[in-house]
Amino acid sequence: MTPHLDSISGGGDGGGDEGIKSETLKAMYIRVKRNKVTYFVQCDPTETTLEIKQKLQGLIDQTSNNQRLTLVSTNEVLDDSKTLADQKVENDAIVGLSIRKDDNEFEEVCIARVEDYTPFS
């Protein structure tokens, strides 16, 4: 009976929101993994490794120089000053996170596997 009301209350279901959210929407995301935790980080191919570390800083309470990122598919350590595109880090890529230990060395990349934790065994 009052179709004009629908357009006011009916929003919020995916499709119509892009106008508002386009600022936060990035071209891709990467999966940063350490042990049993995976961080989904939205980013652009033009961003540098350092910028990614700065984003992680807010989540893990470790400054960027205490973080090391390794592209899992090639086992290459990512360079702070280079962009993701330069280092062939693509959408949905898996990146291992290592934290600097007390003795100033970085820990090994360690990503837990599901098989070791399956509750149905």
Binding site: T24, K36, V37, T38, Y39, F40, V41, Q42, K55, L56, G58, L59, A112, V114, Y117, T118, P119
Partner: peptide, 20 residues
């Protein structure tokens, strides 16, 4: 990224996925 803008989704085995 700020912690307040993310949610942690936890699986049956205790794996954690942090998403916006």
């Amino acid at each position: 990224m700020k912690k307040e803008e993310t949610v942690k989704l936890i699986s049956a085995e205790g794996f954690e996925f942090v998403v916006s």
